[in-house]
Design a protein around this nucleic acid. Structure first.
Lengths: 329, 329
DNA sequence: GTGAAAGCGCTAACAC
DNA sequence: GTGTTAGCGCTTTCAC
């Protein structure tokens, strides 16, 4: 049987309140009582019951983290950064995977929010309204999404997109294909709009192959679609799809980059290993995870009177892995 | 302010117990009272407070899942399978990443175990003793590890290893290098032993490059080490390292498979896309996740009197992606 | 600086 | 079938 606070109190010859204070407000105790209590507690292998503590105090020491897909290599660096940051502040991360599904995300959030002090939501598929309602109940930080009134961390995709378009234009491409992300993805909508605008100023035609759930399989499928167009280049929503695209193009005898240029996004780990080489827009999910977690911790620890909801913008940068141009044949 | 059970009880004209029963033991109530209560509760947007419920009942509806590294593509399929299986039974998964660190894992487990009904631990880096102590406190299912007395799910690595050795032997290899996994990894120890035994029966020399934390970077490093030996083939602990190895070999002008054969393990998603082609031992983490979760749910839901701790063995199979042989030069 | 008492929101005997 | 009565283990005023 696990030791409870009264057991420790009895063994230490103090009241339960004192034991409680030794753990939550040590500075309220005389140094010697505090040390004594902590020592006895340690000897009895006592740790406060988090459920009871939560019930009584209204606080947990957990923060919830929701991602659309742990299998997507984009998220793990964010997750790891968040977790290490949280651990430094003695907090645990409860991670949940919404499976790219808004309904599942809503259900997860509903369950999570009662057991955590704040929520970190990555690439949310929920509506603005749902997120605002949620943010009214507990501290929320959004990653890869921006909703006025909610703190958020995201990448400056405009700048990355501009670099990609300029790069492809300088290589002579005039018709490129966009292999987009999920329809519910804020990042994809943002990027698509951005791409259309920037491409237009470069007299470049963009052929949209429509939304895709980001996966290798979707990339393979998209490659076939791309080949039915006259595009000489592909801009993919992420590296995972870009890899699928390249793999399929190669299998069908289309040379990359000679016959078709492909640019990815995110610079996931494996991107640098891939052949033919994959140019990509690099973003730092590790930095994002750190910033987002710090923000959330600040929101939930310090006075929640922070009326302002910061919208942190992180840089993105094109990484050119191999020069590529349209076929001259 | 969130509605509480007494609010619903008042509004529905019943006692708190009746409301409680409507949620936990609906069959104890008359159909019309149950419906009425549930309706009122829904109208008030009431959901039972999980902390209070947990405190009073000693049960949560969560199960904890610990993995060494979410960034390792091996685990996501397991995670996703576990989560979908858990959701079907109305349970949530709390996922935690131990960062390949036994100390972190111990700390995570300590915090998680108070907020979940059972623990699913993947590739644990803890000692048998620590795991047994843990399993004494709450239901535990191990994945990729076997400890007598604890339920576990793992792959039949002997058979996969045998296929790999036979394959390489049939291609004429006599000296191969093993790029191993983490020193604390039960799977690696098991596989290494297995490999040594099987290789011996084939008169094959195995050069151990030592333990590695499985990552692309480790693979790159290992490739350099391999080149200092006279090995003509590499067996890697997993596909991630195998990809690192191949990438580095290629960069150094060593042709794969002409100059060096490389075999990976797990058949992660991206393995099939990679060039030069990567042969690998396929295992189904999805199946493992399903089985492990079902097992845990069974252990924690049904009578815990199940004295037997099943040790489920799942198959592994060599996938040959390209024939490869030692250089004749 | 420390103790006593009340209560966080719910479940689980036990009555009726 | 449903209500009443105790807690679950802890925190937190309020006294002293």
């Amino acid at each position: 049987m696990k030791a409870k606070i009264t057991d420790v109190a009895g063994a230490a010859g103090v009241s339960a309140s004192t034991v409680s204070r030794a753990f939550t407000n040590p500075h309220l105790l005389r140094a010697d009582t505090r040390d004594h209590v902590l020592q006895v507690a340690a000897r009895m292998d006592y740790t406060p019951n988090v459920q009871a503590r939560g019930l009584a105090s209204g606080k947990t020491t957990n923060i919830g983290l929701v991602v659309p897909d742990v299998a997507n290599a984009f998220f793990p660096p964010f997750i790891k950064a968040a977790q290490s940051r949280a651990r430094e502040r003695d907090r645990d991360i409860f991670l949940a995977d919404s499976d790219e599904n808004a309904l599942v995300e809503a259900a997860l959030v509903k369950r999570l929010r009662e057991q955590v002090d704040g929520l970190l939501i990555c690439s949310s598929r929920l509506t603005d309204a749902a997120l605002l309602e949620l943010a009214g109940r507990l501290p929320v930080v959004l990653f890869n999404r921006s909703v006025p009134g909610i703190a958020s961390v995201r990448f400056d995709s405009n700048s990355g997109t501009r670099q990609v378009v300029e790069h492809l234009a300088s290589l002579g491409h005039t018709r490129i294909s966009y292999v987009g992300g999920p329809a519910e993805s804020w990042a994809d909508q943002h990027r698509r709009t951005s791409l259309m605008e920037i491409a237009e100023t470069h007299r470049m035609t963009v052929i949209d192959t429509g939304p895709h759930v980001p996966s290798l399989a979707a990339g393979i499928q998209a490659a076939d679609a791309v080949l039915t167009t006259s595009a000489t280049g592909v801009i993919a929503f992420d590296d995972t799809m870009a890899i699928g695209v390249i793999s399929r193009l190669t299998a069908r005898g289309v040379r990359v980059p000679e016959d078709m240029s492909v640019v990815g996004h995110d610079d996931i780990n494996v991107a640098a290993m891939f052949r033919p080489a994959l140019s990509t827009v690099r973003v730092s999910c590790t930095a994002a995870g750190r910033v987002a977690t710090d923000l959330l911790l600040q929101l939930s620890l310090e006075q929640p009177a922070t009326a302002e909801s910061p919208d942190v913008l992180l840089p993105s940068q094109l990484i050119i892995r191999e020069s590529s141009g349209p076929s001259s044949g």
